[in-house]
Design a binder for these strands. Structure first.
Lengths: 257, 257
DNA sequence: CGACACTTTGAAGACGATCAACGCCGGTGG
DNA sequence: CCACCGGCGTTGATCGTCTTCAAAGTGTCG
């Protein structure tokens, strides 16, 4: 099922494959195949029967739920290496708990649900990688939750901007927003109006936004502003990384272990 | 290291041991030992070097963080079968991310950190149980986060009351709060004043509180009230269970798989 | 040109946090 | 026995923040 378009090189940034022996890696690859998604295409919907789990190879996948009043509440935006649907498989839930939709043209790796547990049982290294990945995801979700609870809208936005720079290797001095403001606001758990207003207020704190163009004029100021009310922020890889971030100094995703 | 006080029966409610073969189970038991904690005793502190992970056997453990302004933010209250510190071990973090303190006299099972990964690598069944447990914890944390974001203080309190009945097998028609109000408020992420006020408002929704005594006078009304603004609530085992809950009909923790 | 999605801006309102004061209770020490 | 204290919980008043509703501006695409 392995498509020719999937080169071993592509696996370098995928935690699930990190450090696997050649046989283990091959066994995994035998199970999966690549899927291409156009922007806006749904990968699965909340309530769909769980048939597979996925890993992002390229592009961005939006995980979200539909609220009773018709809105969408974005849970997360997933990028290269991140997994979807592992939880559903591991606790034998038979329905996806969220929607998953490609924000832009994306490629994902698809693993049949049945095979994953078997791989984990048989290959200790795969099990450890899964455990590592799940624990990392859980930790990040916990950070996220604490951020939401502790930080003001302005701090959340500032924090998000910092993360963008890390994730995409943007030059903080000037970059374009990679998503629509509506999507970002949803991701940050705030209303679009609040987001819009907040962008202006940030001018005083070292972030200037005009249209889709963002300039972080004072990295240190922003970093201090984001961290001030949140003990946990200091744990964030983001902030540690941002401290060393200089223009044209793109950062990779952190490796396993 | 197995203490005489740990009977095989005790393992029945512990997901990590669920469905293990005799050898697997014994191997795990060889690794761990029981620790007794007095109420108020600390199991570990935020920043401590990670030396072990723990499973609650008896009592209640409070996980919390210290906020910059000196308050405590309760992350979770753990009961029988729940694990602490697994995330820290699996992603090779060398410091605990929270405080852990016994709310009342408690017993926990302690596993040396080094052994856990090795067990997971070698014993497929243990790895699957760990994956199951982590995925369940992660899912519950996600529900929790969505609750916090979506529901009003009153709904959160009502939801908490329902959970108490499920968890402890209380008769909804009348029971005593098992924790101090300060602790509950902290658990629910609100100030004690807000909590206090909220208790009165709930009178209109079928929950009457006087001192530490709680009466849920109208289960259906409350259930509807809690669920109304939160699509996710319907997934909550709580609500499904509560529907079948009748007086003197205690419920067990859900089993594995 | 008009339809429509996206964004901005204003004004009002709801909700919870904060500050302050007080009542209650158990323990301690004189 | 009483006075004092600290932890806990209640109640009132106020304040800031974010949501909500409403309206208008901007852009793209047919």
């Amino acid at each position: 099922m392995t498509l020719p378009s999937l080169h071993p090189d592509s696996l370098r940034n995928i935690p699930l494959f990190a450090g696997l022996s050649q046989p283990d890696s091959s066994a995994l690859l035998q199970l999966c195949h690549v899927r291409n998604l156009a922007g806006g295409a749904h990968l699965f919907r909340q309530g769909d029967t769980v048939g597979a789990f996925f890993i992002v190879l390229e592009g961005t996948i939006q995980l979200f739920r539909a609220t009773p009043d018709g809105h969408e509440k974005t849970i997360d935006l997933l990028h290269i290496g991140q997994m979807m649907g592992v939880g559903e498989i591991m606790d034998s839930c038979n329905a996806y708990r969220t929607y998953a939709r490609a924000v832009n043209a994306s490629r994902v790796l698809e693993f049949p649900a049945a095979s994953l547990k078997e791989m984990a049982r048989r290959h200790g290294a795969v099990a450890l990688n899964l455990l590592w990945a799940m624990s990392t995801q859980a930790h990040e979700a916990a950070l996220e939750a604490e951020h939401q609870a502790t930080m003001s809208a302005a701090q959340l936005v500032a924090c998000f901007m910092q993360r963008l720079c890390i994730l995409f290797g943007f030059n903080p001095a000037g970059f374009e927003l990679p998503y629509s403001k509506t999507l970002i606001a949803s991701r940050l758990g705030m209303e679009i109006e609040t987001f819009s207003r907040t962008l202006h207020k940030l001018r005083d704190n070292g972030i200037v936004v005009d249209g889709n163009h963002v300039s972080i004029t004072d990295i240190d100021l922003i970093n201090q502003y984001v961290c001030e009310s949140c003990s946990i922020s200091r744990e964030c890889v983001t902030h540690q990384k941002l401290a060393q971030l200089s223009p044209s100094h793109p950062t990779q995703l952190s490796g396993n272990d």
